[in-house]
Design a binder for these strands. Structure first.
Lengths: 354, 354
DNA sequence: TTGAAAGCGCTAACAC
DNA sequence: GTGTTAGCGCTTTCAA
């Protein structure tokens, strides 16, 4: 066993008064040192730190929060599913929050009912968070909570009233356009879209980007197919689409749906990408290793989380001054093996964008 | 816009004293009602609840924690990666913690250095959590922190000293055995193992299960190949293994590594499962839709999280009484298309287990 | 069944 | 630079 640091379970936890006594200073001075406040001599600072170390002193956040009214904690309403996207975003958020010197409280909502979001926010507020993050996957639906701390909506427009509301997108619209344009550039007459559930903001952005890309080329807009993000729903959509011989290109709103889709297509005897091209959405690296490797667009989860938290912390700490509007992260198209020119133009050169 | 509930930003937040005044009772009585304590008449209880509702009162957790010494919160040390496994476990933990009426604080550690774990636990302790969960993916290495709250190790043996230590496994050993046995049952002479990083407990359990299965059949134990959980590392291992014509079966310690592995194998002209069978580990449903569909074992993330949190909460709330030891969850082998009898026995019936 | 007073451990405001 | 005093909003005695 390793030598352990810290007091045994017997003696009571040391308080700041104990540190003060040992260091021969007042409680306030200890507080100053612990909070990195100015106007403390280096000598005293050193003594206090040493005393704290000796005693195994640990600051009591609850007491600090009560006295100061600030918690240095941020709450996040996440989605109760374990997808690559959600998880990546959460990891990014955690990192950014930690780097900013805040603690993270997490509450999940079941597959995004508005009730759940309201309840989740309430519970976060009770916990005294200084700010709230509502992460991308959020349903449409009005929520009746009024919160008095800043709220960051990551990847979705504000869903409820708040004193200060921030929004940071992941650039889904531009990504969807890029995905669709890629297919169009390859020479496909039009592109079908396998969308996420209608109620999700995440779906809407992608639909709009797809639609805009089509419109810009004067391409016909085929009817939308709707999935629920799961590979199974992609598979179901694929069975449907496979029977329509006019389909040569599909843009799926999620990598996993794209995988299910491709599977159904191939089962039905349609080759990918020779007969039908498929583009996914997310950028999970594992799909570079399936057959065919999936062409996709990469969502800038980390960049979005970082930027969003920076804004949120700014709103918490300096409510007065404004921060410049968030810059959209670059669009990243990852071309792999699931896309090719349509059968009619096989072997020809792709038509370049203007 | 929807009608909003709650006070505006103008007036100060109501305190329990305000509720007491409106309800015409003492502060202590309000406290009793809010904590569901006995000895309050139904009439008074109703009045208090009504007053709280009217005022939009929200209990202050920091004050409660300070006064009572209990936080009703649990901290989890998670891994800073966004894999399916980690994310599933975290979601399961969140749900279980929430169901138990606790709040969740999350701290990630960078790819699992002991320093990071110690720091993460410290920061959780400062936040005043009543219990800590160190989730499965944890490195070997002694950590010198002494904590005075119960600690749950999910999927790994204790990594440091604590007043009360709990351990709940995900049954990785049994799952690894089942995966290996499945391959052996199919008639393979032996099974290669693509392991996770040596320092991870998660890797060790799987290695031991694999080893035990081999030993039980008197099968030769081929040298271990080591990856880092990533599909890229699986791919690298696959290129290596493909050149060895004696390899007919591989058990990979993670689904993603298995996918990379299969890709390399097929690129090298080895068919899966005809020439080489591959079994993964985790159970991510999306891999049912790749070619070939991946045979794998499902990790019981939810069950483990639920059971673990139940134990932890018990340890927090009733330190005296013991809970019966946790029961191992059932082993679930998901047989899909990536496994078959070895080339030499193709077309024959698989040898059944005793 | 209810209430009054005394803190929980820290920071804020002001003095020195 | 440093110390003093007074709470933050709740729960805990203990008394009624």
């Amino acid at each position: 066993m390793t030598p352990v640091v810290g007091r045994g379970a017997g003696s009571p936890a040391p308080r700041s008064a104990d540190v003060a006594r040992v260091a021969g200073v007042s409680r306030k001075t200890v507080s100053r040192v612990l909070n990195n406040e100015p106007y403390v001599s280096d000598e005293v600072r050193r003594r206090v730190l040493e005393a704290a170390g000796e005693l195994g002193y640990r600051l009591n956040h609850a007491a600090r929060a009560l006295a100061s009214g600030r918690n240095r904690s941020i709450g996040v309403v996440a989605l109760g599913t374990a997808g690559y996207g959600t998880a990546s975003l959460l990891v990014g958020i955690e990192r950014a929050v930690r780097d900013a010197g805040y603690a993270l409280r997490v509450v999940n909502t079941a597959d995004g009912d508005p009730e759940g979001i309201a309840g989740a926010v309430m519970s976060l507020l009770e916990q005294g968070v200084d700010g709230v993050v509502v992460s991308e996957p959020i349903v449409e639906g009005e929520v009746s909570v009024r919160v008095d701390v800043p709220v960051l909506f990551l990847g979705a427009p504000p869903a409820f009233a708040s004193a200060r509301t921030l929004t940071v997108g992941v650039g889904a619209y531009a990504l969807a356009r890029a995905a669709t344009d890629h297919l169009l550039d390859l020479g496909h007459t039009t592109v079908h879209h396998l969308a996420g559930p209608r109620q999700w903001y995440a779906s809407k952005d992608r639909i709009e980007g797809w639609r805009a890309a089509l419109a810009a080329r004067g391409a016909h807009e085929p009817p939308l197919v709707e999935g629920d993000w799961s590979p199974a729903s992609g598979y179901a959509a694929g069975r449907e689409l496979a029977s329509d011989s006019s389909v040569t290109a599909v843009f799926a709103a999620g990598d996993e749906m794209a995988i299910g889709l491709i599977h159904a297509l191939r089962e039905a005897g349609r080759r990918v990408p020779e007969d039908i091209s498929v583009v996914g959405f997310d950028g999970n690296p594992v799909f570079a290793y399936v057959t065919p490797p999936l062409t996709t667009v990469r969502q800038p989860f980390d960049a979005a989380a970082q930027q969003g938290i920076r804004l949120l912390v700014h709103a918490i700490e300096e409510p007065e001054t404004d921060l410049p509007p968030a810059s959209e992260p670059p669009v990243e198209l990852v071309v792999r093996g699931s896309t090719a020119p349509p059968p009619s133009r096989q072997g020809q050169t792709a038509r370049p964008t203007t």
